[in-house]
Nucleic acid binder design. Structure first.
Lengths: 347, 347
DNA sequence: GGGTTTTTTGAGAGCGCTCCCAATTACTGC
DNA sequence: GCAGTAATTGGGAGCGCTCTCAAAAAACCC
């Protein structure tokens, strides 16, 4: 517990020392450091010089203590074990968020939630007022975090459409999502334009809104579709393969598949191959996500629906920052990001 | 700039209010909150009850201001554009770090560095004393961050063996790395045990120590190897494919390839297929990393060298925490994590 | 040039917490 | 029961900063 001072670490200069060196009061030095409004140029320059010479950096803790602003935002990821750690989604999200936050000189505190104990820890942290706002990810239906955040008055933006009852109507609940439903329609439309008539789909876990929305998009275009052409997967390649096998058993004559993720599509492709089906000649395949490292490297390369994950992260951060600024104007509203079809060889 | 107080956000309870409610002094309340040593049980319970009833959470800023400890660690990732965002490495690293840090009740502040401007921003942040230590990732040879960190007396652990001159000798420079060299040896040894005689390798970019070490491992077992059997890639699938094509042009009779990453191996597999080579019959392939989403889903599934990325993250965090604790005993030393061979179908 | 207004500056309080030190209380042993 | 010692407790200073408010200085007006 002994705070072992690293060798050679000089005591950091304080505002006081800057002020003294510049021959002004602490208050004036503070003004200069925070923008310099209403300070005569001559003094401003003198203070600035002192800052440079001393290498002064404001002590954030002291500043936070009085302003009650942290200049930091929590990014909470509650996705135990799932595809987070096999897809590069996560990194792209973070990059988008990072870019937007750092442009506004905000820090990103990353909190990963895995088990019940973590929920408590994170809840405590969020309640602790250590961050000005939170970006919440990958919530299950009964996730307690949004309610927690609301209770402690923490401003929040959610990644992905929240699925619990009433969420949609809650104007206070900001979220950013890809246009999953529209993307699914793009995929099915494309398959239809290729003349495919028996189009199956492999869905994600149907307790997630993204899966539901993609299935809804599929149904939009195939309202009277054969329910036996729908199989539930779990967003993993393995699960996609198993779902594909079920579909083949039930409807051997299917001629196209829309898989709700690239990973599932890659598993499905493998199963099709094992069953002697040629892609795209016998069965056309469209994926979802456009994860470069999967879609571009399947055999054949995967036609898929692209969602701009990084943009999603960026917009989440921007929404939160705007909410934090609270400029009194009309509050920001949730955002749906368009998806596009990327044609490769599988359909 | 007007701090818009969220509706219903009560002023947070302070230590003062806890003390008052429990009928003790602020000092005693503080003791209880921080472990309760030397406080009579009866009082301790009373304070604890007040804490619970009020939902008191210590104000970190105030605490930091006096203790000069932040309870936060920076994770700096300086890997512009590279495989960070296609491989799931990043997420695994972070998970390892997160697990270790949160067990010690430390937060993780994530800083992504992309351009020159970011370096300044991050440098300023690290100098600002906002974190107790830093975990540095993916440094290029001339990366200024370690030196920056040292200058401001920030304790640091590096991910991956640092490559600049003198780094090895610097006892103050802690790092954690996989046993890249040993892993490469495992791969080549395995290929040899299969009776392969003309073993090529596709390296990563040779300005990174991980690439160099893997190549060194290859050379350890093939000291008199044909230099034309070595081609440099860039850790991407595309680059791996191109390197493979070069190798085939130069040495058409090669019968095995050790690729220094799974992504490169997947690109190489595709090129082999295009050239009519069967894997593993004509050419055996071993990758490196064991990225599940790649290695398990290539055709054929990839035999590869597994490195435990999450463990690496965990150990980095542990090393840093130990260094921060500075218990006076012998300082921690750098760690090399063993690698293992995972046999699948490609070799 | 005197009065008035406006702009610039500084003094001082206080954010919530820890920790030193002195005061108090609780135990010893005889 | 009392001195002596040990264990608890509380008072108060102070971490570095912002921000209000009043004083000082500069600018303006007739």
């Amino acid at each position: 517990m002994t705070e072992q001072q690293p060798v050679g670490a000089l005591p950091r200069p304080t505002l006081e020392s800057v002020a003294e060196r510049a021959g002004v009061s602490r208050a004036t030095a503070s003004r200069v450091v925070n923008g310099g409004e209403g300070v005569r140029e001559s003094l401003r320059a003198k203070v600035q010089q002192a800052v440079d010479e001393l290498g002064y950096v404001p002590n954030l803790a002291a500043r936070t203590l009085v302003t009650r602003r942290n200049g930091a935002v929590a990014v909470v990821v509650a996705e135990p074990e799932s595809r987070l750690f096999s897809d590069p989604f996560f990194a792209q999200h973070l990059r988008g968020i990072s870019r937007e936050l750092s442009a506004a000189d905000n820090q990103m505190v990353l909190l990963l939630v895995e088990d019940q104990h973590d929920y408590e820890r994170v809840g405590r942290y969020l309640a602790g007022g250590h961050v000005d706002g939170a970006l919440l990810f990958s919530l299950h239906h009964s996730d307690p975090l949004p309610e927690m955040a609301r209770r402690v008055g923490l401003r929040t933006v959610i990644g992905g459409r929240p699925g619990w009852p009433g969420a949609e109507a809650d104007r206070d609940l900001l979220y950013v999502d890809s246009d999953n439903r529209g993307g699914a329609r793009l995929a099915v439309q494309h398959l239809r334009s290729l003349g495919r008539a028996r189009i199956a789909t492999i869905t994600g876990p149907l307790d997630q809104t993204s899966s539901i929305d993609r299935l809804d998009g599929y149904r939009d275009l195939l309202p009277d579709g054969d329910p036996e052409l729908i199989a539930e997967g779990d967003f993993t390649a393995d699960g996609g393969g198993r779902a594909m096998a079920r579909l083949l058993a039930r409807r051997p004559t299917l001629d196209a598949v829309f898989a709700a993720s690239d990973a599932m599509a890659s598993g499905a492709l493998r199963v099709l191959r094992e069953h002697g089906r040629r892609v795209p000649e016998d069965v056309a395949m469209v994926g979802f996500d456009d994860v470069e490292s999967i879609a571009a490297w399947t055999d054949p390369p995967l036609t898929t629906v692209r969602q701009d994950i990084e943009e999603m992260g960026r917009l989440m951060a921007r929404l939160l920052l705007r909410r934090l600024a609270g400029t009194g104007g009309p509050g920001p509203t949730s955002i749906i990001i368009p998806t596009t079809l990327v044609r490769r060889a599988s359909a």
